[in-house]
Computed example of a mutant assay.
Amino acid sequence: MIRTSVRRITSNTRMFKRLQTGGRSEGSTVASKGGISEKEKAAENMWVREQEAEKIKALQEALHKQKQATESLQKDIDALKNNTK
């Protein structure tokens, strides 16, 4: 479950980087003016931070579920040990 989340995050990050470096024609006018404006950079940075926050939240939820499953299994193991004594 956690591996799936990490794989998904990794693949999404790679895709985002590919899209950033792709030679799309609509960026040519911005490039001719000397690059991306500060406002656009700020908006992009905000978007990236939001995406990373969502990824962190998803991983934290997955970790919480995994901990609950581990605790449940540990209780089952303890119960079986107590029944055999």
Rank of each mutant, 00 (worst) to 15 (best):
S28N: 04
E54R: 13
K55A: 06
R14Q: 15
T10W: 11
Q51G: 11
Q68N: 15
E71D: 15
A69N: 02
W47M: 15
H64C: 07
V6I: 14
Q74V: 05
A62Q: 09
A79T: 10
T84I: 13
R18K: 12
L59Q: 00
K67T: 06
Q60T: 14
R24A: 10
A42V: 01
A62H: 03
E61C: 11
T84E: 11
S72C: 09
R7H: 13
Q51Y: 13
E71Q: 15
A58I: 02
E26M: 13
L80M: 15
R14F: 14
D78S: 06
M15W: 07
A42T: 04
E52D: 12
Q20W: 03
K57R: 12
A69G: 05
W47E: 10
V6L: 07
M46G: 04
I2R: 02
R7N: 12
A31Q: 09
A53C: 01
S32T: 00
S32I: 05
L63M: 06
R49F: 05
K57Y: 03
Q66D: 13
T10R: 12
S72L: 02
T70C: 03
S28T: 05
K55C: 09
L59E: 03
K41W: 06
Q68V: 14
M15K: 03
H64N: 13
G27N: 10
Q74M: 06
R8I: 02
T13I: 09
T4P: 00
T70G: 01
K81E: 15
K65Y: 02
S11E: 15
H64V: 05
V30K: 03
K81N: 09
K41T: 08
N82R: 11
V30H: 05
A69T: 08
E71H: 13
T70M: 04
S11M: 15
D76M: 04
E50R: 04
G34Q: 05
N45H: 14
E50H: 05
R14G: 13
Q68Y: 10
M15G: 02
M46N: 09
T70K: 00
M15Y: 07
E26W: 13
T29R: 06
E38K: 10
T13H: 00
Q66L: 14
E50A: 12
L19P: 00
T4F: 02
A31H: 09
E26G: 12
L59F: 02
A42S: 03
E38N: 05
